[in-house]
Design a protein around this nucleic acid. Sequence first.
DNA 1: CTGGCTACTTAGGACAACTGAC
DNA 2: GTCAGTTGTCCTAAGTAGCCAG
Length: 760
Amino acid sequence: MTSDLHERSSDEEDTPLAQSGKRRRAAQVTIDEEYDTEDGEYNSDIALSQVSENLNGKTTPEVEEPPKRVRRKVKNETPKKKTTRKLKKIKVESSPKKLTTPKSEEDKSVKEEEDEQEDDGGYKWWEAEKEDDTIKWTTLKHNGVIFPPAYEPLPSHVKLYYDGKPVDLPPKAEEVAGFYAALLQSDHTKNPVFQRNFFDDFLEVLKECGGTLNGIEIKVFSKCDFNKMFEYYELQKEQRKQLSSQEKKQLRLEKEKLEEPYKFCELDGRKEQVGNFRIEPPGLFRGRGAHPKTGKLKRRVYPEDVVLNLDNEAPIPPLPEGQNWGEIRHDNTVQWLAMWRENISNSFKYVRFAANSSLNGLSDFKKFEKARQLKDHIDPIRKDYTKNLKSKIMLERQKSVAIYLIDVFALRAGGEKSEDEADTVGCCSLRYEHVTLKPPTTVIFDFLGKDSIRFYQEVEVDKQVFKNLAIFKRPPKQPGHQLFDRLDPSILNKHLQHYMPGLTAKVFRTYNASKTMQDQLDLIPNEGTVAEKLLKYNAANRTVAILCNHQRSVTKTHAQSVQKASDKIRELEWQKIRLKKAILQLDKKQMKERPKFFEEVEDITKEDEMAIHKRIIEREVEKCHKKFARDNDKRKFENMELLKESDLKEWLDKVEEQRLNFEQELKTGVVELKMASTVEKLDKQIEKLDQRIQNSAIQLRDKEENSQVSLGTSKINYIDPRLSVVFCKKYGVPIEKIFTKSLREKFKWAVESVDENWRF
DNA sequence: CTGGCTACTTAGGACAACTGAC
DNA sequence: GTCAGTTGTCCTAAGTAGCCAG
């Protein structure tokens, strides 16, 4: 058999359509038909040479077409107006009584949050027995949503400038310009796509409201100057910061009072917290990664856009005169209170219960129970996919490899994406260029995953997986082509259902994350201080985060703070050595008695010492200046006599004296301590320093290792909270050290239901 | 089947609040 | 008390997945 027997014959275009059409025929095609093999193992010699060609492919780029990105069918090619299932306007008849919270609000002027928890937390759903899970509630009452405040036009002296001239914008357009101005210092505004999308939408809004008010015609983005607007916002921010703490408190209280009615709802007669009761304010869409729509105007949402969901007896939240809700629904099979359609990708946004709500808790519990259940099925699944790596049917091989990748490297399912989203992939949507093969069995993954976070891993894989990946990459496939051209998440999930009802690709991530955590926790000895145990818990957490590729961007100040910390350690070490020298000065015999102890005295070079001296002196000088400035500020305020320059000089002289001492010390090697001391006292000090050095070193290492890893996501979504609870109970670590207040509430079901023998 | 809807889960960054060293 | 650095919360984007009509 030769290459023209490949399923994809050469005359077929590699259009997205052709690609997706091919999938349909996939099932019938066997490996035998496709590849010249007897046992389902394809001829690795041929394939490997092809592979390495691609690999060493530094040669190929010149020859090949630049990798084109072939995507599957484009959704919404023509953004056709959806069959407008027009939101029925239901006339609000019922008197819009305000929802009274179960207990009288006046009882407590200052709300005690902990107490608040007590009375609604009485219901322990995890101890109740619920049968039907398609019905989420029988009664649901709430007060609707908070709309963002109306736009307040800028004062007349703050304007957009066009080509150097002030522009009078109609409020609606000014608002949009303001959205951009506010972001002037962010990275978004440096992105040309963002600029263009913003500008297009801005012009459109401007046109809608009839153009500028002073006849200036805005045409070119580059002539727009948003600085005056930006400065105004900065000023406002500054002023807000300057408010006295009293005023700030006042504002906080007012906000609190306004929000109070929306924070809670009543579900089956119980008080529950609402999550995002604030409608998202208008602004510029900030898509992540290379999002084609980033910068577009996210339009304001009005009551007419909002669908409310509550029970049919529930009072309908009132609206200002003349305004109406888009629709009132009574759908008790869903867990949302309100929703609206956003204009960027035409999808829905939901107002839902808070993380600590019973319904969300229940879903969470079920999620982890499902993942735990996978424990009992994982062995046959692994056995199966290992076996099927050699299946004669292409589809089967792709399935097996996909499940292997999802299981072993915790890849996401990887659904199809449309052309107007950022180009990110998961397992099923991996393309040729995302996987590089390095014989014999090394694979390099390099692609952008969810949120355009880079997934880069060089890993060893099963031999047969390697071979299969080589097959999936075989010509005529080239960059831009799907690796798993027979697969999508729904095919995969359907396959997985056979092993276990409800099993889907994402369950593997939960399972492997929690399993890994359990294994890591098992390795931690029950000894040492709480701080030490905590450190080990975090290390375990980190293992999971790395498995799931949970990253965060390093802070701007990271390098600096690492530098600072390591400088501090060096300084401590220097101090220690200095003390050891002092010991030797006191008693020369010590060297013979404890040669090991004094070994490190030689470790420090003159240059090191000089650098440390310099740092200390610089710091001291700076301190003097700062203190001088601060003291005088204070004195000015209190109408006291100011410190004179001579006072500052006096301080600085002292520092200079110290500098000279250091210089002397460096020259002679003789350490002069401030106080007379004994060998014993110095030993004690050294011991303390050692401890401090160790602690600082651990902290530094932790900081380094955590700088790119985000622990939160796995803690919140992947690690069964019961693992953490058991850990705390068993190891005597207070749960507050691991779960913040809101996490303790979210995971209340776990905190209260588990004994210390529980295992994932 | 497939594609489009719909609902729900997972995600990182912005920003506010807190904390500990000085 | 002040400041810098850290931690916790909020915000909303971006995934997964089930369902249903054609």
